[in-house]
């Protein structure tokens, strides 16, 4: 496969994982602009393990992802007490704290970044994508799927029927952290070089944009969003240096024209009548 195409597909796979991570949290009616922080934790922890401690890649990915999930639990406890704009800002602050922490943290290269990681293949990225997709679909069809819908739709009514809203939000936050952490670990061992700037606020924002524009109602929307908006800047290459402008205009326009995203549940139901239960 040619190198250019492979690079685009790898970035797309990582973006799909990031979109799934954003969606995990959005499904509980909370929007996180800090998932790049989780990604950074997964990237740096796994990179430290493989480069400095000589670990194999797979256990390093597992530990990197788990570290991000654990931080998710820890940070989620206080941050999830915040609502609305405050929650958004709290997660944003978290992401920036993580980024600036790694900017200064010498054992993982500080401002110079880190190199020496390798081993992520395209296949590996898409195995993770497929695995998480299957998990999302299975959870969506489980009882937990309704529970998540219920608490997303009406927090107070959900509590009134005994749903443990706070616990589920915390777990969803950590689950999002796990996925972003794994995305980060894969990214680090694909990109060969990482620096704290790779995990800035725009990465978190993009992850959420993928989900919202693709369609927040179904997991397929997140995937569609990540695919389209990973390919779009490439498709706009004929615009040369103007392509990010075009990208911005298209995003703003789409938000106005399809605020509910490209793919909706109703559409999916129509497309696939055989779906007993929406994913």
């Amino acid at each position: 496969m040619n190198i250019y195409l492979e690079g685009v597909l790898a970035a797309m796979g990582i973006n799909i994982l990031l979109a799934l991570s954003a969606r995990a949290i959005l499904a509980t009616d909370r929007l996180s602009l800090g998932n790049a922080g989780f990604m950074a934790i997964g990237a740096y922890v796994s990179a430290y393990l493989t480069v400095s401690l000589g670990w194999d890649l797979y256990p390093a990915i597992a530990v990197g992802g788990s570290a991000a999930a654990a931080i998710g639990l820890l940070v989620g406890l206080p941050v999830l007490r915040l609502q609305g704009i405050y929650f958004v800002m709290g997660t944003l602050a978290f992401g920036e704290v993580v980024r600036t922490f790694f900017q200064n943290f010498e054992p993982t290269g500080g401002a110079y970044g880190m190199r020496g990681m390798f081993g992520t293949t395209l296949t590996m990225i898409y195995v993770f994508v497929a695995a998480f997709l299957v998990l999302f679909l299975a959870l969506g069809r489980s009882r937990l799927g309704y529970v998540a819908d219920a608490l997303h739709d009406d927090d107070e009514a959900a509590r009134s029927i005994g749903i443990n809203v706070d616990l589920l939000r915390l777990l969803a936050f950590a689950w999002g952290g796990l996925i972003a952490g794994i995305a980060g670990a894969l990214f680090a061992h694909y990109a060969l070089y990482i620096e704290s700037g790779n995990f800035n606020f725009l990465v978190s924002a993009n992850a959420v944009l993928f989900v919202i524009l693709g369609g927040v109602q179904t997991v397929w929307g997140a995937i569609l969003g990540a695919v389209i908006f990973s390919l779009l800047p490439e498709g706009l290459r004929f615009l040369a240096d103007w392509r990010l402008s075009a990208y911005g205009v298209i995003l703003v326009g789409l938000m106005i024209l399809r605020p509910e995203g490209i793919l909706t549940r109703a559409m999916l139901r129509r497309l696939a009548g055989f779906f007993v239960r929406k994913p």
């Binding site: 309704y146 819908d149 219920a150 997303h152 739709d153 009406d154 107070e156 009514a157 959900a158 109602q217 549940r265």
Partner: peptide
């Protein structure tokens, strides 16, 4: 008092 059903269920 003001009905609170789940929109997507």
């Amino acid at each position: 008092q003001n009905i609170r059903l789940f929109r997507s269920l």
